[in-house]
Amino acid sequence: MTEPALRVENIRKSFGDHEVLKGISMTAAKGDVVAILGASGSGKSTFLRCINLLETPSDGKVWLKGEEMRMTDRRGIRRPADLKQVERMRAKLAMVFQGFNLWSHMTVLENIIEGPVHVLGTPRREARDKAAALLAKVGLSDRADYYPAHLSGGQQQRVAIARALAMEPDVMLFDEPTSALDPELVGEVLAVMRALADEGRTMLVVTHEMAFARDVSTRTVFLHQGQVCEEGAPDDLFRNPQTQQFRAFLSRMN
């Protein structure tokens, strides 16, 4: 049996007394596109951030291509056992943020080659060539020397996707990638994400775009109050919601 690209088991997260995630498990095989839906406050962004340890989960395990991210307890606080391992795994778990988070003091090209050159140790020349190809892919070849402040939101997000791709990740994590965009700019970002799904990228996508979930995802997961409430093939799920919560959510979104 081949190892799944990503497996997470029983992820829990509390902020103070408030338990945001109440034990979430999920598996993504290579090429899976998992759409994660849920009302605001359902914990979907926190869940994504727990996978690459931007938030440290209170409990639970993460495997990337069969390798477990080792955690330890020190003085009652859970933390990574080996920071080097976490850094290595994060490099293979690229994240695309709601707010783009491009580095504002670097040009588009510099943003894209930063990770390959300084984290992966790719020769600068090779990284530049690859960046050029990635910029062509997201349709921004003519913007290589621009600074992020001179780009529209949609263009910034496409650069952020190119920056993530430059790491040659095993799994891509999208945290509401279109939520901060003006409505007329959403389409260009979704088009790029569709293309990535078509070429077999493994993706976890937290989103409010119902059409994207329905048409592009191989599996849709609905989170409610920190737990998986419904999950399955998008066709079944959208046509035939099983729970009151998901029905209510769908009617609010339409």
Binding site: E87, R88, R90, F97, G99, N101, W103, S104, E114, V119
Partner: peptide, 15 residues
């Protein structure tokens, strides 16, 4: 410095 830019660095695997 926007916190998100630091998170982008961390999530890229930077030490």
């Amino acid at each position: 410095i926007p916190r998100g830019q630091i998170e982008a660095g961390i999530s890229t695997g930077m030490s």
